[in-house]
Design a binder for these strands. Sequence first.
DNA 1: ACCATATTGTCAAGAGGCCTGACGATATGT
DNA 2: ACATATCGTCAGGCCTCTTGACAATATGGT
Lengths: 162, 162
Amino acid sequence: MGRELDVATAALQRRPEGPPLIGLLTPLVAWWEDRHLELMAGAGFDDVRRAHNAVFVNLPAEGRRLTDLADAAGMTKQAMGELVDDLVAKGYFRKEPDPTDGRAKLLVWDERGLAAHEATMAAFATIEDEVAAIVGDEDLAVVRRTLSALVRATHAPHARST
Amino acid sequence: MGRELDVATAALQRRPEGPPLIGLLTPLVAWWEDRHLELMAGAGFDDVRRAHNAVFVNLPAEGRRLTDLADAAGMTKQAMGELVDDLVAKGYFRKEPDPTDGRAKLLVWDERGLAAHEATMAAFATIEDEVAAIVGDEDLAVVRRTLSALVRATHAPHARST
DNA sequence: ACCATATTGTCAAGAGGCCTGACGATATGT
DNA sequence: ACATATCGTCAGGCCTCTTGACAATATGGT
């Protein structure tokens, strides 16, 4: 059912400190993404796929270029181009020529796309509330603060080198 | 470089409570998996892929059946079969007939596989230490406890229903 | 104005990772 | 003995993402 619910289940309990983080992070991401798609479908956006998230999350209301979008999502422009073309075909946004650059095209939300964008934000808020209801605001705040620090540290410009 | 480093970056800062969890979880998982592969390659296991984790983590030293393995990893036996065949070809383990069931085959680690299995556990411990060094033992403990509760709650048998 | 170089978006091809459907071989319960 | 379920496999397909190559356009130096 869930994608990789208990990857790492075996290795976990035997460690004194408890399960390794990866064994918690992975199923949580899977759950979050499933829940997000569920909420989106419930809001009438039943043709969005998991991969579209990279677009919905990184394309601001003002529009953006394909290459910028791909960069922000951490993937190639070709991969992003596929997602974008799909969403264009589905009526979520359109491509407009960039007035400042003849090569570039600006991706601009259509009405349906703007609604989907907002639905995504609303879904995030909803899921966040669900999480808070389970673990409490206090612990959640610690988690958020700690993971934020971790992300900053691990993704610092010099951290991964090369 | 990183796979989807800042998915959700855009939507984050504007929320009063801070960035949504998914914007932290996703890059952390990506980082963890990259780091794991790095450590494995450093230990001489440079032919393992991300997907192999499901095997390394869910196949105990005593061996296991394909179907069990697939179940534990949350994927189909066909998908797991592909991973297994690949690892068998690479000399990590072998298939033996299950003496108690003529249909089944037992997957048993070879020497190289056992070493890789241990290297995975060692890599987990190393990464865990790196994490602790960044955020401190105290916060890490809270994170682990909180996320554990979350995983239990979201993956309870009746939680996702239907 | 000209030209080398870099960048934008696209086409083509393919790998990787997963899925559904169908199947022979084997177990199991009646 | 026979119906039924399960084990592993073959076949085929979808989705996501990659590398390589390319025409069109920008940009900076001469």
